[in-house]
């Protein structure tokens, strides 16, 4: 196969049909911008939601009076419960200190005694930070001798579980719909561009070109379109990210955070879209009758 000829034909396709090339590149660019921005927002929002889950912890308040001997025994029993990563003892004095930090006043000055019980702050394993597992840990903690009461943010966990599921389903659905739309849009645009070249395809077949020989220049064209579309969309997304980071700042800036490798993925996706669009489109015309092509 004459590779030089294939490349020349593929590249000269740009000169011969400038408008359809521009439209194809534009379509790929727009599709990738939509897909890229959607992925960024989905992924980062998901991470932010999950970070709320990371903050979920339990507090086990101890029965009074607590002695220096009883607290290590309670601690051992707490550690023996599956799903507990760490437990930190908070004495009555430390509890009063935390109260002062939070409310600005010493509780002993208000009530003349310290009513705050000693407690264990309990950190759960990652896999146990959901409604069902937390409920099991909670029940086991309640049964530990010396533990008076256990609290945790049950409603927040329930809310996160429900919303996370809904969010994941909605995002997956929208992502798939967006991807299918992009593939359809790109292959349709490329098909229109190739439609105008039916005559050249028919002539190639007429003079004895093999299917691979006919296909290759179009695939080269598709790849070049995809790479250009990938570069343009990466550039646009980069500008959006830089601008949004400046405007939002703080926590919200995390929604638009992007690693440099993401731009390479966009470039790869563009190449893939361009190639796939060409493969789908050229297949239709390659099987058309030579004589019936006008």
């Amino acid at each position: 196969m004459n590779i030089f000829y294939v490349l020349k034909e593929g590249i000269s396709g740009f000169k011969r049909a400038r408008l359809s090339m521009v439209i194809s590149i534009f379509t790929i660019t727009i599709s990738l911008i939509l897909l890229g921005l959607f992925t960024i927002v989905f992924r980062n929002t998901n991470q932010i939601v999950e970070s709320f889950r990371d903050r979920v912890e339990m507090e086990a308040f101890l029965e009074e009076p607590i002695t220096d001997e009883t607290s290590p025994i309670v601690e051992r029993k707490i550690h023996a419960i599956p799903g507990i990563k760490a437990a930190k003892f908070i004495s009555k004095e430390e509890a009063a200190k935390i109260f002062k930090e939070q409310f600005g006043e010493d509780i002993r000055n208000i009530l003349e005694f310290n009513p705050l019980p000693a407690s264990f702050k309990i950190y759960l394993e990652k896999d146990y930070k959901n409604t069902d597992s937390a409920r099991v840990v909670y029940a086991k903690l309640k049964l530990v001798p010396g533990v008076d009461d256990v609290i945790y943010r049950k409603t927040l966990l329930q809310l996160l579980d429900r919303r996370a599921q809904l969010f994941a389903m909605a995002s997956l659905g929208s992502g798939i719909a967006l991807l299918i739309t992009a593939i359809f849009l790109v292959s349709n645009t490329i098909r229109l561009a190739i439609y105008s070249k039916r005559k050249i395809i028919a002539t190639m077949k007429l003079v004895g070109a093999t299917r691979m020989f006919i296909r290759l220049p179009f695939l080269v064209e598709g790849i070049v379109q995809g790479v250009l579309g990938g570069l343009f969309s990466s550039g646009f997304i980069y500008l959006v990210v830089v601008y949004a980071s400046k405007v939002f700042g703080g926590d919200l800036a995390a929604i638009v955070f992007v690693e440099p490798t993401f731009y390479l993925i966009i470039l790869g996706a563009g190449t893939f879209l361009g190639l796939l669009g060409s493969v789908i489109s050229v297949r239709k015309f390659i099987t058309e009758s030579v004589a019936l092509t006008n």
């Binding site: 028919a202 002539t203 077949k205 007429l206 003079v207 004895g208 093999t210 299917r211």
Partner: peptide
């Protein structure tokens, strides 16, 4: 289908509408 191009290289075809590029 792979042999059809080989056959066409042995033939010349001319049409009423020329089919030039």
């Amino acid at each position: 289908s792979k042999q059809i191009p080989m056959l066409r290289r042995k033939l010349g075809v001319v049409y009423q509408d020329f089919k030039l590029l």
